[in-house]
Simulated scan of single mutants.
Amino acid sequence: MVRTHSLALIIGLVGVASVSAHQEPKTDAEIETQRALQRAAYYCAPAVGEFTAARKRAWQQQVLSGLPLNQAAFAPASIPSAGNPSLPTNEDLFNSGTYPSGSQTTPQGKQEILACDVIEEETEMQNNSCVLTPIVTEGPYYHNSGHPIRQNIAEYQIGLLTYLDIGVIDVNTCKPLPNVLVDIWQANATGHYAGHPEPAPHLVNEQPQVGGKRSGLLSAFPRTNFHEQWLRGAWQTDSHGVARFTTIFPGYYTGRATHVHAKVFTSWTENPNGTFDGGKLAHVGQFFFEDDLNMQVDKMYPYVENPIRDIRGRTRNWRDSLNIFEDSHGPEGEYNPIFKMHLLGGVINQGLVGFITMGINGSYEMDNWWKG
């Protein structure tokens, strides 16, 4: 049976501007729309901060407590996990008493308002350290149909185990946004997307663009394999506005910094085969990782087998083509699109967990389908 999901509109539009693929705001209306979202997310920063910090504290408490943790991060808490660290269930995260509410107090008696990291010595507000900017390009590797609804998107791709904890708030209300669909897709450890294994035959010897915004880029690989779905998937935020995924740390490819793509749909149609058709699109963005972490992962198998490792190497965040990394900080540079990462165990090869919160306008509908 086909089911249609929808989210009731909460508040009127901050602004109406149709945004095409990687179209920077140019008109007065588009610029004001972007800045309105910016201001709203800024004022939501304390709420976002506690939202993110609470999820991190709950996870850390479970790991440090030595209590049995849920199997594969998302199974019911009643299923034993052989003591391996993983993310807590939604019930564990948001049970009363699981984590302190409100602002914390340092040993020196100073009030601390934390937006991301729980650091006892911190006394300054870190306003936007975990808020993802609105609206950047979806890129050429999105599949308009066939994205599965699932939390574990890794399939049989080999790589560093990575859990992603993605919170969504509505900038109209500064509250977590439940029942929206977070859709993510990424490259594998050697820089390929599912369905796009090779360059077009006439572009096999193509060299990267030199100079300009497209510096370092190659033409997009065509989709020639239509059954592959690995490292693609979508999941509905729970009643607390959180969607969680199991994946691997993404690899890199020519011209682009390491990243994960994301869309948020406020309505969609679920198909009988477990995939969905998108409806109202409220957000398009890209997540990034710290360069130092990227460089460490580069030393691990199978990331060392990236075919461009010894030819062109990775693109650092600050050299990301099309200015996507820069654009992801917003028109006034107030956002931070980088996951806050933590080790799952004592060493990096035991896996990672990353936290980020997206501030979106739940009443907004955009046109951001790839037209390149």
Rank of each mutant, 00 (worst) to 15 (best):
M1I: 01
R3H: 11
R3T: 15
H5Q: 08
L7K: 05
L7V: 04
L13A: 11
H22D: 12
P25L: 01
E32W: 03
Q34W: 13
Q34D: 08
R35I: 15
A36K: 13
A36S: 03
A41I: 02
C44V: 02
P46L: 05
V48N: 12
A53Q: 10
K56Y: 04
W59N: 07
Q60E: 09
Q61C: 08
Q62V: 12
G66Q: 10
S81T: 14
A82T: 07
A82W: 11
G83D: 07
N95I: 04
N95G: 08
G97A: 07
S103G: 01
T106L: 06
Q111Y: 12
C116K: 03
V118H: 03
E120D: 07
N127Y: 08
S129H: 04
P134D: 14
E155M: 10
Y156K: 11
Y156L: 07
L161W: 14
T162Y: 07
L164W: 11
I166S: 01
V168S: 01
L181K: 03
T190D: 03
P197K: 10
P197C: 09
P201Y: 09
N205H: 15
G211I: 09
F221I: 05
Q229C: 02
T237W: 05
R244F: 03
H259N: 13
V260L: 10
T266I: 13
N273T: 09
D277P: 00
L281D: 01
P302K: 10
N306K: 02
N306I: 05
R309L: 04
R312N: 06
G313R: 06
R316L: 13
D320M: 09
E326D: 15
G330K: 01
Y335P: 00
P337E: 00
K340Q: 14
N349E: 13
G351N: 06
G362I: 07
G362Y: 04
Y364F: 01
N368P: 03
W369A: 03
